[in-house]
Design a protein around this nucleic acid. Sequence first.
DNA 1: AATGAATGAGATTTCATTCAT
DNA 2: GATGAATGAAATCTCATTCAT
Lengths: 204, 204, 204, 204
Amino acid sequence: MPTKKKPQVTAAAPARRRELLDTAAEVFAEQGYNATTVRKIADHAGMLAGSLYYHFDSKESMLEEILRTFLDELWDGYDTVLEAGTGPRETLEALVTESFREIDRHRAAVAIYQKESKQLVAQERFAFLAESQRRFEKAWLSTLERGVAERVFRADLDVRLTYRFVRDTVWVAASWYRPGGQHSPEEIARQYLSMVLDGIAVRA
Amino acid sequence: MPTKKKPQVTAAAPARRRELLDTAAEVFAEQGYNATTVRKIADHAGMLAGSLYYHFDSKESMLEEILRTFLDELWDGYDTVLEAGTGPRETLEALVTESFREIDRHRAAVAIYQKESKQLVAQERFAFLAESQRRFEKAWLSTLERGVAERVFRADLDVRLTYRFVRDTVWVAASWYRPGGQHSPEEIARQYLSMVLDGIAVRA
Amino acid sequence: MPTKKKPQVTAAAPARRRELLDTAAEVFAEQGYNATTVRKIADHAGMLAGSLYYHFDSKESMLEEILRTFLDELWDGYDTVLEAGTGPRETLEALVTESFREIDRHRAAVAIYQKESKQLVAQERFAFLAESQRRFEKAWLSTLERGVAERVFRADLDVRLTYRFVRDTVWVAASWYRPGGQHSPEEIARQYLSMVLDGIAVRA
Amino acid sequence: MPTKKKPQVTAAAPARRRELLDTAAEVFAEQGYNATTVRKIADHAGMLAGSLYYHFDSKESMLEEILRTFLDELWDGYDTVLEAGTGPRETLEALVTESFREIDRHRAAVAIYQKESKQLVAQERFAFLAESQRRFEKAWLSTLERGVAERVFRADLDVRLTYRFVRDTVWVAASWYRPGGQHSPEEIARQYLSMVLDGIAVRA
DNA sequence: AATGAATGAGATTTCATTCAT
DNA sequence: GATGAATGAAATCTCATTCAT
């Protein structure tokens, strides 16, 4: 087997990479991407800062891989939901539940995404975030619009505002959610859906 | 040349200070505190980086002053609401409306607060953030609990979860809100309250 | 005078820049570009490594400016010679003499150019070196060709080989030439021309 | 596991060593010694960076061996020429021809020698370069001086300047020469000698 | 009030080299 | 003989901050 160059970007030895990326994601989520030094990541991984560069090209490439991996899995889940062809209310419920499951599985990545993506999209390298945002918006908006058309969701709301409301409502949870706590993701999803769909006021 | 240097802590020329702090807040909000260099702030203000130090002790002191000013005004508003002694639903409506007014007035500061406060509270200097968070939580929680007790809000909800839901729901709006847009803060507050209180589903 | 940004690339304060560039060129020439650390340059300039970045964007940008400045001046001289419309022998003599004068004035830059340009041209940023090389080749080749046509230069030589011979013959001198030595540039030019034109063998 | 590690200094498996050194020389010549990473050499050789250390002690020892091998062969050729006891013109012609043959055989090594030796001589390890330079200078100078004494070369030339002229004139050719091109080394030597001995001007 | 120049600490990155397997 | 992972030293660069003018 001749000349291969760069072991890094190749998904050659995925085990150690994954470990290190999980570590990095944890630190990024906790301290913020900019405030996280490569040394801190290395400390957490029990190695020297320079050693990380055997596995990754740069701090930024770690961030990219963390976000890409997360979004790939997220869309796997979402696509399954969207292709199921269920009614708008069931679709919305499934999307919310799926979102909380992703928060459960990728808490760190979600927190990073929430905090950093607005800054990152401007960079060419992170253009895939914008693409994901577009698909995201389309999925939610069309579900809401179908729901309004089918009189399942209230027609007197501004749809874009409602979209933002639902979207944010779900994802900010990543900032306080701790996996393994007293609530399972499905339980939290159920409560959130109850609030979003029926409100917190007592029905007249 | 008598006495000391550095007139900054002196409240002299408060107009220029305010201008500069607004500029700084804008840049902090747009790029993130860590990613914002003193040079960028100075560029926006039409001066050189070093010149800012005539007005402020440090980058951190700018951040502190921005957040303190915002929280002081926020609590002026909240305290008025809380001391009015209205019923839980009216109090909640007033708090949400007041919050959107603050977002309107201090959009940059709110965005900074949302993004950075979690990291900052750990520092002695920003302990006032923790204090504010405690008062905040108390205000909302007690309003919700009063509402549940008075059967104005649903009893079947996890109150802490509901608190986070309402809190996040309101404040994340700062990440997309643009003052002077098509919706006034009061209008947005009304729509949000409608969703939060009554849900987005059509009533059976 | 409002917002100006970046004092560096702007030719704002040319005095200190020039000093620092001269220092840098000296070190680059002596130790080679790659082997020269920014710290060494700073040491020679009596400042700290980081301080250089107030004046220049990067080590590479120093190199670029050194080479550009040199080539600009070189072409000022060459163009004057080429536009004089003299015969091929006089043109060649003038070009050689001008070259030794440039070596005298920009010894460091010439040495750097000689040693590094082959590696550098591959980079986008140093594409201007390729452009200069093309003009260079054209100037010398056409002079030689005119000379052959006018029977001033021998016709039995391979013109491209002759071009390389003459070109290298002149410029490698930069690797050993020391300004202020016993020979003036004009004197060296005269000797070189004597060898190049008439050879070192005794005439039959 | 008895005795030591590292069999490299042992002359075992000299074929692979030679191959690897040729590869290394090629890369050193193309990119410069400092700019060449051990990884690049390994890439070209189809192995990983660390694997090179089975064969060699260090990057520097590769360089040393490349230059030593080249100079050993060079001096074999030169000594034969110098001991032949021919007249100064024939000696000079033979030295130049031999030089072009060496460029043909060791193009990479010659290019490295040209570019790096000035920096290297300062190091103890490369003191042999200085020794070679002294012998080199002596060989050429004495040949030129004999030529002047025997009225074969012009007496009106500065001998040291002429020495540098001839030396540079020959060796820089390594920077553009490509083996297997249209000119054989002997052909190029003949043309160079024609220029050096008789000049490029038409004889009056 | 502001500029221009510098400092100094620390960040990211590079890379020759080592070594257990 | 070669790989994969790591080390550790050093290099480039960034940036908040200082200070004489």
